[in-house]
Design a protein around this nucleic acid. Structure first.
Lengths: 207, 207
DNA sequence: GTCTATACGTTGATAGAC
DNA sequence: GTCTATCAACGTATAGAC
């Protein structure tokens, strides 16, 4: 059974990680200050350093959590056997993640843009093997005539880029949408349009 | 006629801007140091501050140049009247820019991810009016039956995101490509695949 | 125009009282 | 576990000699 101290500890760590996600996403690793993260989490800077020895370690633990979530979300790809259903669900799951967790997506983007110093091992192992397995699935669909011939890697990169664009570039999209962020309804429409465009690209659309 | 001093001046400014592009792209605004930029440009830090009063001003001037280039490149969209040719050329131009100037693309991405503090005015005015004009052109194609019905904004965002992905995420793509950056030949193939996927998405592919 | 030395602010991290 | 006070390192910017 957890005592009070342990509960406080969990609560604080959760708060700090949530605060760090916001601040790292909006200011970058170097631009984020531990003072700002602590303030956002509602405690003094020294406490933050009590729970996370260094800024670098906090960043690494945060990224680890984001990678775990990414892997969970990726399972949507495997829930269905028919390409049309599988792709539709995967794209919808990624669009939903961009909507709910834009800061997580931004941290990922920043990390990769700046050379993936921290996540390169994850990319080389986990992500690469996940990708190659799905490429095999897609090529299977193609060889069974269930989908137009295409380069499976290029398709995956297209899905990743467009869905993450709605998180990473949300500020630009809001400005181009007359200065207003998408409403839930508008975002649902955008999701449908993305699904539709990609299904057409792979030869699986109704019309 | 330009004298020696003026030539030196131009040469140094050009060098500093080129160095700044590399350093800002790979370390972010805050992560980049004027010392590092100066070193990359081959001169002492004090000289950099002689040509550019502050780091912030250097960053702004650099971004301005990138926006100008973006506008030039965007003209590829208007060089042809038929949708298939126009889109093909535009996508190829954007893929080429990602190949030749990945750092410029990364700086743009970083700037927008972190709230577009510097470029928001450009987005609100120049980019927005450019986009709306092209949306009108696309809608014209659709109403003349030259293209499948679709949301023109969603199409433009798809083109932007996938083409810029090849610059911004080049590190990730290289890792997933067995640790090797794309050769010129491979990149040409990727470009063809992107063009093919998008043409299919809009109902303009041969097959 | 160039460059060395330096002033000054910011920030990550800790000491030590509670 | 919490928090105030403090320090050392770093980074922007400039002064001033050449």
């Amino acid at each position: 059974m957890k005592d009070q101290k342990e509960l406080t500890r969990e609560h604080n760590i959760k708060n700090i990680l949530a605060a760090a996600e916001v601040v790292f996403a909006n200011f970058g690793f170097k631009g984020a200050t531990t003072e700002q993260i602590a303030k956002q989490a509602g405690l003094p800077k020294a406490n933050l350093h009590y729970y996370f020895k260094t800024k670098s370690l906090l960043y690494r633990e945060l990224l680890e959590g984001i990678l775990d979530e990414w892997m969970e979300e990726a399972e949507a790809f495997d829930d269905y056997e028919e390409p049309k259903i599988a792709l539709t669900h995967y794209i919808q799951a990624k669009m939903q993640f961009s909507r709910m967790r834009p800061d997580a997506s931004k941290i990922w983007a920043n990390e990769v843009i700046q050379g993936a110093g921290v996540v390169s091992e994850f990319l080389e192992t986990t992500l690469k093997s996940w990708l190659e397995n799905r490429v095999t699935v897609i090529n299977g669909w193609i060889s069974h005539g269930k989908m137009s011939p295409l380069d499976a890697h290029a398709l995956m990169y297209m899905i990743w880029s467009i869905t993450q664009h709605y998180a990473d570039f949300e500020r630009q999209l809001a400005i181009l949408n007359n200065g207003k962020s998408f409403s839930d309804e508008e975002y649902q429409q955008k999701t449908d349009q993305v699904v539709q465009l990609i299904l057409r690209a792979v030869g699986l659309a109704d019309k």
